[in-house]
């Protein structure tokens, strides 16, 4: 059981998190500036039709699986970590909160607004008006940028939370 939880579980949590944060950084460092340039020469539709929807699908499911696997690893210690009930849980508690806020941003702000921007799912046949699309684009952009900002301390607290690393970084 420990092997599944701490071996396979942690490995899958990290692999999932790499996929999630990798795509998040791709959106922010590559796709957003790329789309701006593509919009100027009329080549944006190829990206918004074939690349962005695929990236978003992987992105949102990776966010969910990363969160669920993280919760699985913490197991019965999840409430204690989130409520900072023991000093040893402070670092992972901060990491878990940052990850949780990022996960909520993905499913609560980025995905619903990107569906409007890219005419996906219920908007495929009924696209929203341009004004609403622009508003949705800005909201999704800011949520994505907030997540990029939060990913920096989140990764720090995740990697600095385990055993030797935690003692080296935080003492005790």
């Amino acid at each position: 059981m420990d092997f599944i939880l701490y071996g396979v579980g942690r490995w899958l949590h990290i692999a999932s998190g790499v996929l999630w944060v990798g795509l998040l950084w791709y959106f922010n460092f590559v796709q957003v500036p790329g789309l701006k340039a593509a919009g100027a020469d009329g080549t944006a539709p190829g990206i918004t039709k074939h690349i962005a929807p695929r990236a978003l699908e992987l992105f949102r499911w990776a966010a969910l699986s990363t969160w669920l696997l993280g919760a699985m690893i913490l197991g019965s210690k999840l409430p204690a970590a989130l409520l900072f009930q023991d000093k040893a849980y402070y670092p992972i508690g901060i990491g878990a909160w940052l990850g949780t806020i990022m996960f909520l941003n993905v499913w609560g702000l980025i995905w619903p607004n990107q569906k409007k921007v890219l005419n996906l799912y219920q908007y495929a046949q009924n696209p929203v008006a341009d004004a609403e699309k622009n508003k949705a684009r800005r909201t999704a952009f800011l949520a994505s940028r907030i997540n990029t900002m939060l990913s920096i301390p989140m990764l720090f607290f995740m990697v600095a939370s385990g055993g030797l690393f935690r003692r080296a970084m935080f003492g005790g």
């Binding site: 940028r145 900002m149 920096i152 301390p153 003492g171």
Partner: peptide, 30 residues
């Protein structure tokens, strides 16, 4: 004032500042 999140360097600097602040919060709270 311009929103720092509108630029990539601004976003990264905000993330680094937040990391340092949270690190010291955890360190001092322990």
């Amino acid at each position: 004032m311009k929103n720092p999140l509108d630029s990539i360097p601004g976003t990264i600097i905000c993330g680094l500042i937040l990391t340092v602040v949270l690190y010291y919060v955890v360190l001092l709270a322990r």
